[in-house]
Amino acid sequence: MHIHAYEKLWLAASILLILLLIGSVTYGAVGPGVAMVSDSEPPIDAQALDEDDRFSEPRVEQVGDNEYVAYVVAYQFGFEPSPIVVPENSTVTFYVTSRDVIHGFEVAGTNANTMVVPGEVSKITVKTDDRQEYGLICNEYCGAGHHVMEGKVNVVSQAEFDERNSGGDDA
């Protein structure tokens, strides 16, 4: 079978393109460590979040050297805690659940974005950079007040984070 030289050329180019696409996604996973939202969390009772160890008191906790967890509850129409305060240059794992309907958890302008389903816990781990205030929005229509459902994720300096937390313990 004769294949025209140009046809060989653009066949080769399209194979190259496919390899490039697969290659860059592989690079993203191996290099910067881009991962998917985990589905490994067991389901919980959305009606009984107030009896849950993690979600009865939504909070940010230090769990290791420069590692933090944030337990977040989304509800009609807001997020708890508000604001979510985490230290800079750290690894933060968000556990997010809903106590009523399906919500979204999107840290505006970033890759931290997940669906929040009642009875399920969405777990995403992110690396924070420098100090910054991010908006937090719900991106799943959740009712009449959906458009006002917002929160804040404040990335603060380590000193400020420690100060807030020790202040919280004293109070």
Binding site: V25, G28, P32, V34, G109, N111, T125, Q132
Partner: peptide
């Protein structure tokens, strides 16, 4: 789209 917009954004999801 991938290297600048996606990977260059803050809060890259790593787990």
């Amino acid at each position: 789209i991938y290297y600048i917009e996606f990977l260059g954004r803050d809060l890259v999801v790593v787990g």
